[in-house]
Amino acid sequence: MRLRIDLAYDGGGFYGWAKQPTLRTVQGEIEAAMRKILRVSADPSSPEAQSEPLRLVVAGRTDTGVHASHQVCHVDVPPDILARAVGHMDVPPTVALTRRLQRLLPSDIAVRSIAPAPDGFDARFSALERTYVYRIADRGSEVDPRMRGFVLHIDDDLDVDAMNAAAAMTIGLHDFGSFATPNPGGTTIREVKTAYWRRVPSRPLIGDDAAMGERYRTPAVESGLLCFTIVADAFARNMVRSLVGGCVQVGCGKRSLDWFAGKMATPLREGSTGPIAPQGLTLEHIEYPADDQLAVRAEAIRAKRTL
């Protein structure tokens, strides 16, 4: 049976999502924990356990150091293997697996839920869109050291209007070859639905209640941060971080809007459009269609994109 897994993670301690033989990755940690719980070995020659790969398929592969507050993946598990998660618990197998993973996984991964996936569901190909947010503390906001793991500190006072003018150029169907690397056999053509910069307004931690007194007017943790929100059908490798890097160059006056427009018009990768640091980027949301449209969407998105 196919299971849908919703999860979150702090990417600071991982070399990205995708499993690698000698490096710590999110996929590697989860698959290893699932094999332990379900007594399944990745080694076909192992006599201790039945050989089942338990390979996770993810909605969006995140790079080294990138976070996710809402990631989605799926895995195919035979029902008899899944039943091993129950043990002494009087709960459905998916609930048992969720509880055991929550206890076994390291603290920088959180499993939100595990449930049987609807017919036709594919975590990657059924997705309608992904939402990423990049958070920056520039001179217009106070730097809070508690947030250093998911916010990038920049000394410049960034021009938000200029950055929004650059971001507006990315909306629509474009070849993002200046800002991304294609997968083998793939393209850098993507459709961006929304892209904008916005400064989080400063606000008190507790509502404006005169009876509470001024001593309670502590700013909420994200007050003043500059956030880039981008929504697209899918993203090519390094695309979001490279777009952020380009916008920041415009925002601090190092590059012009004409330069950004030229990079959008001519999809050619070169040194000035490389990815910005990863820690400010978080995958925030994956959107899926209604259950009866999952298989249709998966089939349509597998086609190679063209302009």
Rank of each mutant, 00 (worst) to 15 (best):
M1C: 07
R2A: 03
R4G: 01
I5N: 03
G11W: 05
F14T: 02
A18D: 07
Q20E: 04
T22H: 15
T25L: 06
E31S: 02
A33G: 09
M34E: 01
L38V: 06
S41Q: 03
P44Y: 08
V58D: 05
G60W: 07
R61V: 00
C73R: 03
D76H: 07
L82K: 01
R84V: 04
H88L: 11
P93R: 08
T94L: 04
A96Y: 04
T98V: 08
S107D: 14
D108W: 03
D108L: 04
D108G: 02
D108A: 09
R112Y: 12
D119N: 03
G120A: 06
D122N: 12
A123V: 08
F125K: 05
S126I: 11
Y132M: 03
V133K: 13
R139K: 13
R146Y: 14
G149R: 11
I154Y: 09
D156K: 10
D159R: 07
D159Y: 08
D161K: 14
A166D: 01
A168Y: 02
H174S: 06
N183S: 09
I189S: 01
I189C: 02
R190D: 00
W197F: 11
R199L: 01
V200H: 06
R203T: 15
R203Y: 09
P204C: 09
G207P: 13
D209T: 14
E214T: 08
R215C: 14
G224R: 03
L225V: 04
F228N: 08
F228S: 01
T229H: 05
F235N: 05
R241Q: 00
R241T: 00
L243E: 01
V244S: 01
G253A: 12
G253C: 10
K254R: 15
R255I: 08
L257H: 13
D258T: 15
F260P: 04
K263N: 14
T266V: 12
L268H: 14
T273V: 12
G274E: 10
A277Y: 07
P278S: 02
Q279V: 11
L281E: 05
L283C: 00
E284T: 15
Q293Y: 10
A300Y: 06
A300K: 15
R302V: 03
R305Y: 10
T306S: 12
L307T: 02
